[in-house]
Amino acid sequence: MSLDADEVARIAHLAGLAIDEADIPEYTTNLSNILELVEQMSSVDTAGIEPMAHPLELPQRLREDKVTETDQRELFQKCAPKVERGLYLVPQVIE
């Protein structure tokens, strides 16, 4: 499986990553090589095999539906790059 530059740019877009134009050829080569390695998976027929999502195959634990967390907004917002009056700031989204 080999990717071209347009596909790499599309994947970077899906991944929410800005990639320098100049770096695209290197990513194209590296990502194609990784996909080539991954292609080995197709050598095995896995029809009917249950996918394994959890190494111990345990179900997720449930807990009582009650509030256990306290409000720590101020503490958590201390590590935010831009906040004002308790709100996270982002560029304007709605005109």
Binding site: A12, L14, A15, L17, Y27, V38
Partner: peptide
């Protein structure tokens, strides 16, 4: 990290 995010994104797309 970017390479891995991109391959992962591709594999889940």
């Amino acid at each position: 990290v970017k390479r891995r995010i991109m391959i992962g994104t591709y594999a889940l797309s």
